[in-house]
Simulated scan of single mutants.
Amino acid sequence: MGDDFMKPADDLTARVEQRLRTSADRYKVLDSYTSDFDPCETWTLTRDSIAAQAPIRVFLEEGDFDAHTYTMREGAFADEGAARHWLDDRSSPLPQPPECRGDAAALRTRAARTRSAGASAIPKAGLDAHSTPSAGTAQRPSPGR
C-alpha cells in the first residue's frame, strides 16, 4: 500500500465513517455514483430508517490524490428530489443532518474555549512586572494541569 494509501483528511471524516460502520442496516442505498476523474468523488444516496427529520442522506467522499487523503461528509434532505437537485447543482453547501448540527456547534465552542484558555494561561504578574526582561519569560503551567 505504501504512499498510495489514502487516509482520512480530518476528524469529521473519521466520525462519519465510524457512524456508517456501526449503523448495521440503518441506511438503505437508493443510488450511488463514482468518478475517478477531477473531481474524484463517490456519492451514495440513502434513506435513513431512524431519522425523524430529513431522512434522505447523501454521503459524499472526495479524494485528494496529491495529499493522499479523502473527506467524507453527510448531508440531509427532506426528500429524494431535493437530494438529487443538490447533487446536480451544488451551488449551496451540503446541508448538515439535524442531529449533527449540535455536534458542530459544540466542537466550535470547545475550540474557542481552548483558544481562550491558552491566551489566559500567562499569569498577569508576568505581563505587569517591570523587573523581568520580557513578558515572554512568564511561567507556563506544567503539562500535567
Score class of each variant (00 low, 15 high):
G2I: 01
G2A: 13
D4K: 06
F5K: 08
F5D: 15
F5S: 15
M6L: 14
K7G: 09
K7Q: 15
A9L: 01
A9F: 00
D10N: 14
D10Q: 00
D11S: 12
T13Y: 02
T13S: 07
A14P: 05
A14T: 13
R15M: 12
V16W: 00
V16E: 02
E17L: 12
E17G: 12
E17K: 04
E17H: 08
Q18N: 11
L20W: 04
R21Q: 15
T22G: 12
D25C: 06
D25I: 04
R26I: 07
Y27R: 00
K28Y: 07
V29M: 13
V29C: 09
L30M: 07
L30K: 04
T34N: 05
S35G: 03
D36C: 07
D36H: 09
D38V: 10
P39E: 00
C40T: 11
T42L: 06
T44K: 05
L45V: 02
L45G: 00
T46F: 01
T46W: 01
T46P: 05
S49D: 15
S49I: 02
A52P: 12
A52Y: 11
A52S: 14
Q53W: 03
A54V: 06
A54W: 06
P55C: 00
I56H: 04
I56T: 10
I56L: 03
F59A: 04
L60I: 06
E61I: 08
E61M: 14
E62C: 11
F65V: 06
D66I: 06
H68G: 15
Y70G: 11
T71E: 04
T71D: 07
M72F: 08
R73D: 13
E74M: 09
G75L: 01
G75V: 02
A76F: 01
A78S: 14
D79Y: 03
E80M: 05
G81I: 07
A82D: 14
A83Q: 08
A83D: 07
R84E: 09
L87R: 05
D88Q: 13
R90H: 04
S91N: 15
S91A: 12
S92G: 12
S92W: 04
P93F: 08
Q96F: 13
P98W: 00
P98H: 01
P98T: 02
E99N: 11
C100N: 14
R101M: 14
G102L: 13
D103T: 14
D103F: 13
A105E: 14
A106D: 15
L107S: 13
A111F: 02
A112Q: 08
R113H: 11
T114V: 13
R115D: 14
S116Y: 08
A117H: 05
A119Q: 12
A121T: 01
I122H: 10
K124T: 12
G126V: 03
G126W: 04
L127D: 08
A129G: 04
A129T: 05
S131W: 07
S131H: 10
S134V: 01
S134Q: 06
S134L: 06
A135D: 09
A135Y: 03
G136R: 06
G136H: 05
T137M: 12
A138V: 02
Q139H: 09
Q139W: 02
R140M: 11
S142W: 07
S142L: 10
P143R: 03
P143E: 12
G144M: 00
R145A: 12
